[in-house]
Design a protein around this nucleic acid. Structure first.
Lengths: 227, 227
DNA sequence: CGATAGACATTTGTATACAATACCGTCAAG
DNA sequence: CTTGACGGTATTGTATACAAATGTCTATCG
């Protein structure tokens, strides 16, 4: 339903392995062998190697001193850093988008925003739908920014695992606030105000960071209580 | 003499192809076939493909609608964007470095800075040596920043071609100014002042951008005059 | 004359076989 | 008991052969 265009085996491998790593079926730090990945994705080792190169570049997979593959494991500092970088780059993307976005794209953001609202308002809130639309929203902005480099770099900040962990903990009013920020971004784009857009986006990411931090802390305390 | 450690064919291919593309022996927009690249780098197509994946990720090589390879060609807007992103990321790196840098690394920056001065002061200025030491200087800072993500992302902003084009046009006093800025960075690091370090670095990159712009404009006018 | 279908050539994609290397347990010597 | 060397095993690296696809040229038909 997504992109039946290219049944390229190396793309299949990329998707499958990525999914495998991100869905938590793989332990951080766990070793991965090319053959195992080949079995998982149902292709031979050659396309797996290409897929691994890409995932390695996104730091989802790391190579040991020599050449063995492991599922990436992030330190707290790494995650802080990820949010800081995301804030800078997405803020910049929003700024550029405000200058370059088409009316057509603004309308699309509006439609996505409607779906976001719907996801939040359903009881219980449909977090999965929320995440999917949230991703689309940011993708449209990235596209509107018209910067191949940003498009190449932002995916490296692999939001997925963190985003998932974050949003799973969102309370309804936090989701509502997030939806409001999306609306405000649209307003900034409509006004073609790049400063406004950057500020809202920076705040948006920053808020997500703090929600994440507090839930991470809560988790940690729970873990310690269980010991 | 460089790194005899890993005679990995795919690394050889990466270096050779990168060099081929950056040294201007390859025309922007020119098609590259895997076999041709294999011949150039003296290995088979398999490692070439891995090297190409990496170069593709750095946007030094691009893939056409379907899968043919071409030497990247940057628009003026792309280059502006590159400098903006470099400014943000290197500024951030400097900020982090100011917090994390070791005395040992500060001393190394001092030594590199001495070599920079020497390169500038020789008559005529040794631009090649200047560029090499400049690169080392920024590498040490990146290392001191202790952010795997930054280390993965900054190389994507492939300074080389632009840096070369820029520095080739540097006048001696511009090189001197650049060397002064390096000294000021060291001062900021010594003071562990992250705000200072960020500001100096941002200015440093920004100045390079303007030198680049003016020389690019000069070139353009020359070309037009020759028509 | 222009368009289009089809054959041919070129290029990329995948699988497999084999070579090189790294890891790990075992055993012997200090 | 520790240390270090050895050898077997697991894993990655490379080359080659072949399959799939894309592009190109030509000849034929409208």
């Amino acid at each position: 339903m997504e992109k039946a265009a290219s049944p390229r085996a190396s793309d299949i491998a990329y998707d499958k392995i990525r999914q495998f790593v991100l869905s938590g079926r793989a332990e951080p730090g766990q070793q991965l062998t090319e053959e195992q990945l080949a079995r998982i994705s149902g292709v031979s080792r050659t396309p797996v190697r290409e897929a691994v190169r890409r995932l390695e570049n996104e730091l989802l997979i790391v190579r040991s001193d020599s050449k063995r593959l492991f599922v990436a494991d992030w330190s707290a500092d790494d995650i802080d850093e990820m949010f800081v970088l995301r804030g800078m780059l997405e803020g910049h993307a929003a700024s550029r988008a405000a200058r370059n976005i088409s009316n057509r794209q603004i309308e699309e953001l509006g439609r996505i925003s409607d779906l976001l609202d719907a996801a939040v308002r359903s009881t219980p809130p449909d977090v999965t739908a929320f995440l999917a639309q949230n991703r689309r929203f940011h993708e449209v902005i990235l596209e509107a920014a018209r910067s191949p480099r940003l498009s190449a770099m932002l995916p490296m900040l692999v939001e997925q695992p963190v985003v998932r962990r974050t949003a799973a903990q969102y309370k309804t009013d936090e989701l509502l606030q997030s939806a409001r920020e999306h609306r405000e971004l649209i307003a900034a784009f409509t006004a073609r105000d790049s400063l406004w857009a950057r500020a809202v986006m920076t705040s948006h990411i920053r808020r997500a960071f703090h929600v994440f931090s507090s839930t991470a802390k809560r988790h940690k305390e729970q873990r310690q209580a269980n010991d």
